[in-house]
């Protein structure tokens, strides 16, 4: 059975402190996979929960990317998407609220979407806080309890150009 989380549990997991090594970005080795680059990185939270960061960057459209924080419940191989920072390559519709928009947007897991049988992170809000893959990553790290050194950032370092 799929894991279901309340809004309180989701919030706690998002804000749980997660420490990344200082050379986190240097360690990243994106791989080309059928039209996009991707890499993934597992990190433990200070409360003992396991998390996974997924990074996707389209090779044809730089505005098409996704930076995702997932939670891996113990005793399960299910990945629960807590937050997803998407680029500007498609419209998004919030099925419960009925609003549609085209722009950079942040998906957030919610209790009410799970209760409706929809994807846990099917709710999203439009944002102007980022405009590319790197700034979207910075937003996720800032929003989701990550502690990391911010030195030496560049596109080349990420292997994304």
């Amino acid at each position: 059975m799929a894991v279901q989380l309340t809004d309180t549990e989701i919030g706690a997991l998002i804000h749980e402190t997660k420490i990344l090594p200082e050379d986190f970005r240097v360690r990243i080795r994106p791989r080309t996979k059928r039209g996009h680059k991707e890499f993934e990185y597992e990190v433990d939270g200070q409360d003992g929960h396991a998390f996974l960061l997924k990074f996707r960057q389209n090779e044809l459209n730089t505005l098409d990317f996704s930076v995702i924080l997932l939670y891996i419940p113990k005793g399960s191989n299910q990945h629960f998407r807590l937050r997803r920072y998407n680029g500007k390559s498609h419209e998004h519709t919030n099925k419960i609220e009925g609003d549609t928009f085209f722009g950079f947007h942040i998906h957030t897991a919610t209790e009410r979407y799970q209760q409706q049988g929809l994807d846990e992170d099917a709710y999203a809000v439009q944002t102007d806080r980022y405009a590319d893959f790197i700034s979207a990553t910075d937003c996720l790290l800032k929003d989701c309890g990550f502690a990391i050194s911010n030195k030496n950032r560049s596109l080349a370092l990420w292997g994304m150009n």
Partner: peptide, 14 residues
């Protein structure tokens, strides 16, 4: 522009 298959990898391994 490669979006469909990339979108599937949010959940599945490529």
């Amino acid at each position: 522009e490669g979006h469909t298959l990339m979108h599937l990898t949010y959940e599945l391994d490529e």
